[in-house]
């Protein structure tokens, strides 16, 4: 009688424990999914700030009539492509291209000492450079979050719940290997 009572109570707590464990796992998976969306939103807001600053930069540089036009055209095209990107890999690729175009512009500006010394330009350059560093950090954070999520949905026992919740692997925020190009800057061009 005593053994049966004790057995029933312990079994009750064991089942309660299993239930609580499943709730913990379920909540953890939902939290990870939300974290990914939040981490992405935190990158997106910075990318948008960067897009908004590019026209200002172009306007400042355009003031110099003999400035290399191709650099400006490339930058504007990269911004347009970045704004139009929909999928994560497209956005990553577009962000990479925009970074390349900006770096190219900053490199070319080295040949224009007057422009380089202009206060407006310096401020924009600093803001864009800070944004770029922040984007890099948040991209790394986003990728860590995705990696944690991908690992979790593949591990036991989370994999059992993840299947039922129809959770699938998420992509990292990175440009496709073949699409990453080194920015070629011809300083002698101007």
């Amino acid at each position: 009688m005593i053994t049966a009572t004790v057995g029933t109570v312990v079994a009750f707590f064991a089942v309660l424990g299993l239930f609580l464990y499943l709730v913990t796992v379920f909540n953890g998976l939902i939290r990870l999914k939300v974290n990914i969306d939040k981490a992405w939103a935190n990158i997106d807001v910075l990318l948008k700030q960067r897009h908004d600053l590019v026209p200002n930069l172009v306007a400042v540089v355009k003031g110099y009539k003999d400035f290399e036009q191709k650099t400006l055209t490339d930058l504007t095209a990269a911004r347009t492509a970045s704004l139009g990107a929909v999928s994560l890999s497209d956005k990553a690729q577009a962000a990479e291209t925009l970074t390349g175009s900006l770096n190219r512009l900053f490199a070319v500006v080295e040949n224009y000492p007057q422009l380089k010394a202009q206060q407006n330009f310096l401020e924009l350059q600093k803001t864009l450079s800070d944004l770029e560093s922040q984007v890099a950090d948040r991209r790394s954070f986003y990728n860590d979050t995705v990696a944690a999520y991908n690992a979790r949905i593949a591990q036991f026992p989370d994999v059992l719940l993840a299947g039922g919740m129809k959770l699938t692997r998420r992509d990292l925020f990175q440009a496709a290997e073949g699409e990453k190009g080194i920015v070629q800057v011809n300083l002698a061009a101007s």
Partner: peptide, 25 residues
């Protein structure tokens, strides 16, 4: 014990961030 487990999993689920990458939350 379950409260401790919850904290452990929460800690595992949030990657370490740099000060510059911090966002509200």
């Amino acid at each position: 014990g379950f409260a401790q487990l919850r904290t452990k999993r929460l800690m595992q689920d949030i990657p370490l961030s740099t000060v510059r990458a911090m966002a509200p939350g």
